[in-house]
Design a protein around this nucleic acid. Structure first.
Lengths: 197, 197
DNA sequence: TCAATAGTGTCTGTTAGACATTATGGA
DNA sequence: TCCATAATGTCTAACAGACACTATTGA
């Protein structure tokens, strides 16, 4: 889901990505963090620069140059958004200003491509979660189904999570054990060379 | 190797990354391409945006915001640089303006991390090359030795190169067959999920 | 002839994916 | 009881890395 805010009345599009102009003397990272906090009503669990966009496409600010940032919150926290902001499904977005449309596509693409390098998925979950929840996040972001046993084996080998004593029953079947994100110190050299794309 | 240009006399550092200010009405990609052509004396084989830098570190332009671009040429082409530009080894660079130092580190890191997704290495080679040359580029960028037989197997499986009829003798041993970059089919679905870092 | 480099065949350990099975709760 | 979901054991195919070997040149 993407957080959009209502555009001023005279705007052609009715929704926009949250944005602000860079004030002299401020750093873009600080400004991005402030904007995220203000839009969400709370601090996001991750804020990261993605790319700069300086083409001729229109941006509401009129700026020559725009820098896109990614901020993530888990679903539960995201329910507390304030003001005229609203979550929209990525696959079903209203019209956006052209440059913002390009910025959003860049952010989503970057999110997918760095999913295996960076523990991005954990920022989209509460601090305690089931492995099925975690796998569903990965499947959502990667856009394909994953093999359950294999997913858990890899996860175990990576020492990224640790079990808690809690179990949660989600409807019918056997309750799932709850885990927390707890990366252990280890950095295995990756094997092989992949010649992708 | 990194192409640096001489800084104006009053500058504290004697060398700088090539840079230019964004002119109103121009796109950053066009401006980057022009700057690369002007600095190299010829068009690079790849120009790509890496990241924006808007912290308080000093940049020669005095701009609030700088956008770093990566441009690649092969060694042979790079010998034809014009003006007061000179190639410097990445491991042995002269002092640079602070923000440019950060920009360069970001570019090199990005280069390494995307090496498996993007055919970056081929932009650093002439159009015709030996597989040993290609492997040396990968080893240089990855910073580790690769297994010869395994490297060639992966390369063959990826359908990225095709052999030519030419062979080249480099000193003593058996001559090496020359290859050209000729990506055939699109990639098949990558296996597994890697939980890196 | 020897030395050096290119290129390949074979074996082994690791691991992703398929499949099956057990475990444990709710209806 | 049946059913749904969690969790795990086993087999197989794919593949990275090690090793050894052949091929082909220059000295």
């Amino acid at each position: 889901m993407v957080l959009l805010v209502r555009a001023p009345a005279k705007s052609r599009e009715r929704w926009q990505l949250p944005w602000r102009s860079l004030r002299p003397g401020e750093t873009i990272d600080d400004e991005a963090a402030k904007l995220a906090r203000k839009s969400l009503g709370t601090a996001p669990s991750l804020v990261e620069q993605v790319a700069a966009f300086g083409d001729k496409r229109r941006h509401p600010s009129g700026a020559e140059l725009s820098v896109a940032f990614l901020a993530l919150v888990d679903e539960e926290t995201g329910e507390g958004v304030v003001g005229d902001a609203m979550w929209h499904a990525v696959e079903d977005l209203p019209p956006l200003p052209p440059r913002q449309r390009a910025m959003l596509e860049g952010v989503v693409t970057s999110l997918r491509s760095r999913l295996d390098q960076s523990p991005i998925a954990f920022h989209l979950l509460p601090s305690i979660f089931t492995l099925t929840q975690l796998q569903e996040i990965y499947e959502l972001l990667l856009g394909r189904r994953l093999h359950k046993a294999s997913f858990r084996r890899s996860l175990h080998a990576a020492w990224l999570v640790e079990p808690t004593d809690e179990w949660r029953s989600e409807g019918r079947g056997r309750p799932a054990q709850l885990f927390r994100y707890a990366p252990k110190k280890r950095r295995s050299g990756r094997r092989g060379v992949r010649f992708g794309a």
